[in-house]
Nucleic acid binder design. Structure first.
Length: 492
DNA sequence: AAAAAAG
């Protein structure tokens, strides 16, 4: 109930939405253009290199960026976008600027923010498909994008963000509320609460954030009117539009928005932003078809996606039971290494591992989709408050979950693709990305069995990302684990 | 068989 109450972000009086300049007068454009049909292939590598030298000098900035070379950008149309080296370059309202500095405590845009924010905010508002590394600041891109495009004086829902899980929806809502605290913009999260949607009163927050099922419900019961929508965001877009993900729901919501607009004889167009750290070839092709009319695109080369700051290790355990011993003896007894997430494949194995460790007297929590929403919320709240140190999880929190203190990720099982022999490369990358947020240090332990599939899958993953995954050669050697964690920089 | 969902 409380979750679905409309929340005002207001702390001060509102202002009209800001419009950024089309191109900076005194700044150099980020692009070197090469004509290629009606689309221009644009290399931003030169600019990025220049930026990284600059950033090297200012070491103490809040946002530490992982290396962002190997980015490929395609800009459509004639608009020249200028990389925003400061938030002031974006013509944001003073209230939004205040939110960025005072509430978020940002100093300047991260690389992905510097590049995409002008693309998002400059009219004509083009669609954007943007890929960038885990922990590089994508959320700020689309949250700021939504906030900057909302007119606070118009009491209509103008921005919508669709997320794959309630946890991510809640997390994005928190960021939005913080960033927009001084703007007067209202926002509401749409996730299951236990109260039937049919019994809810109609609402019209400026910004809506939610999960597909609940959003669909609110729309079909005509409790949420999106006929004035200006901007639609898909967080974890590759999963939101994947066949084995939320493709049908996502397309249905897009159709319903158009229908709502048509019914009121309003312009049916709206800007679409697609953000993710991963876009495999299949999804990428499909995604490019979804957003019509030459979207701006930003992609990262696959081999450049793994974070250098997060060291990866693998260890072959003779028996399944040994995995629990590794967790017990090598991880639970380490002392101060920050927080840990242990990923398992199924809900049942999450419960089993939780029970096993609890019986040995260890203080762990777990989260998966069969738990009550109240329990899920509590577990996340406690973990985010640093009250718990070890969290066992299914892939509910594989994507997007942002907790800076997570230094260690354990893959109790390697992620596999359902009904195939293939490992799930995307999920692997997302899990690993829970550690080392915003350039922080991290380590990953992959617990393998000696049964063939595990080792093969691990090798495929290494090859796919060109990753260096070092082997811990003796599964029960304390020195080796400690050495690994010291090497990763998370053990003193 | 992860996830979302008064399906």
């Amino acid at each position: 109930m409380a979750d679905n109450e409309e929340k005002s972000l207001t702390a001060e009086s509102s202002s009209t939405s800001a419009k950024p300049s089309v191109a900076g007068e005194n700044r150099e454009p980020i692009t070197e253009k090469k004509k290629c049909g009606d689309v221009e292939e644009v290399s931003v590598a030169t600019e990025l290199n220049r930026l990284s030298i600059k950033e090297e000098e200012k070491r103490d900035s809040v946002l530490h960026e992982p290396e962002d070379s190997n980015i490929e950008a395609v800009i459509s149309g004639d608009t020249v976008y200028t990389s925003a080296s400061r938030f002031e370059d974006l013509n944001l309202s003073p209230e939004l600027i205040k939110g960025l500095y005072v509430e978020m405590r940002f100093e300047k845009p991260s690389k992905i923010q510097a590049i995409t924010l002008p693309m998002i905010m400059t009219p004509p508002y083009k669609h954007l498909i943007a890929q960038s590394h885990n922990g590089s600041g994508k959320t700020t891109c689309f949250v700021l994008g939504m906030l900057s495009r909302v007119d606070p004086t118009l009491s209509k829902t103008q921005a919508l963000c669709i997320c794959p899980t309630r946890e991510l929806a809640n997390q994005n809502m928190e960021v939005l509320q913080k960033m927009g605290k001084f703007t007067g913009i209202t926002a509401q999260v749409f996730v299951p609460t236990g109260v039937p949607v049919a019994k809810q009163a109609p609402v019209s927050p400026h910004v809506a954030v939610g999960t597909p099922g609940t959003l669909k419900k609110w729309m079909t019961y005509e409790k949420l009117d999106l006929s004035h929508l200006k901007i639609l965001v898909f967080d974890e877009a590759d999963h939101m539009l994947a066949t084995d993900g939320f493709k049908d729901d996502s397309l249905k919501i897009m159709k319903d928005i158009e229908y709502q607009k048509k019914k009121k004889n309003l312009d049916t167009s709206f800007q679409v932003l697609l953000f993710s750290a991963t876009f495999n070839e299949t999804v990428r092709k499909f995604v490019e078809k979804i957003v019509k009319g030459d979207p701006n695109k930003l992609f990262v080369e696959r081999k450049a996606l793994t974070l250098d700051s997060v060291k990866q290790y693998k260890v072959v355990c003779p028996e399944e039971q040994n995995k629990i011993e590794v967790i017990k003896d090598q991880i639970m007894e380490l002392g101060d290494i920050g927080q840990t997430i242990i990923f398992v494949e199924t809900k049942v194995s999450a419960d089993k591992l939780h029970k096993a460790l609890a019986e040995m007297g260890y203080d762990v929590t777990s989260i998966h989709g069969s738990m009550t929403v109240a329990d899920r919320d509590t577990v996340v709240k406690e973990f985010k408050a640093n009250l718990t140190q070890v969290l066992i999880a299914t892939d509910v929190i594989a994507r997007g979950f942002d907790q800076k203190q997570v230094n260690l990720v354990v893959n109790y099982n390697l992620p596999c693709t359902y009904n195939t022999e293939e490992p799930n490369y995307e999920v692997y990358l997302h899990r690993v990305g829970r550690a080392g947020r915003f350039g922080g240090k991290g380590a990953v332990f992959n617990l393998l069995l000696d049964d063939g599939w595990d080792k093969e899958a691990m090798e495929k993953i290494e090859k796919y990302f060109g990753a260096n995954v070092k082997e811990i050669t003796t599964w029960n050697s304390e020195e080796e684990y400690k050495g690994a964690l010291k090497e990763a920089g998370i053990l003193g």
